[in-house]
Design a protein around this nucleic acid. Structure first.
Lengths: 112, 112
DNA sequence: TCCTGTGCGTTTTGTTTTGGAACTTATGGC
DNA sequence: GCCATAAGTTCCAAAACAAAACGCACAGGA
């Protein structure tokens, strides 16, 4: 089964995962909730490659989770902000954070 | 950055994702919460390949989220049950389900 | 004018992971 | 013996990924 087919699964968890079901997407959204919005900010904070970042941002915009917003017209620059649909992922991020905090202690030195 | 490096990230969300941050793992756990425990049950329910399923189950056992349990010794058969650490992912699954239910309507006919 | 820097990506080149299907191993029933 | 069941394993091609270079549009300074 492919990722795309998941979006029409009977199960709402599977449908949710068709959007946020990979390790990078939720890290981007975490950064959004931390106030980041720019390409370079995501790239540096999450440690993912620019290639993957660009693709994930595109997907998130297509899915209506983020909005691509022109914030400077002189040199055309865009950033990404949460839509209402994206904002509603807050509780999911929080439960994941709480689980990680409790059940996934840091073993070695923290990196990024 | 690689998946494995995520497990020592300063951010608890990232550490959580180092375990559950892919589309198949959370589907396996969803099935666990629905009472499934056998290899074939996961395979059929989620639609993932047996190859990937075997790998993910191994990871989940290594991480202490599932326990591999001998349930028949005559023909040796194992199944997988949630540990306390796994049980604590319940809230995360529920928030994802709720988000999916509200924000990801089924577009075409449901499949599996 | 030319050079350098910034921000947001795209392209290129290998490596790793995944998908799909067949195969294995151990046992029980007919 | 022969088929079925459960839990994987193995093989190969296709897709996704990582890392780094490149592209482009503009700004500021020399």
């Amino acid at each position: 089964m492919k990722w795309s087919e998941l979006s029409d699964n009977w199960c709402p968890v599977a449908r949710a995962l068709s959007v946020v079901g990979d390790r990078w997407t939720l890290l981007i959204l975490r950064d959004c909730f931390l106030g980041k919005s720019k390409f370079e900010e995501f790239a540096e904070s999450s440690g993912m490659t620019r290639h993957i970042l660009a693709e994930r941002l595109k997907r998130l915009v297509e899915e209506g989770v983020l909005e691509r917003r022109l914030y400077s017209s002189a040199p055309k620059r865009y950033d990404y902000v949460l839509t209402p649909k994206g904002e509603e992922l807050g509780p999911a991020l929080r439960t994941l954070r709480d689980w990680g905090k409790k059940n996934m202690p840091v073993r070695r030195e923290a990196k990024a």
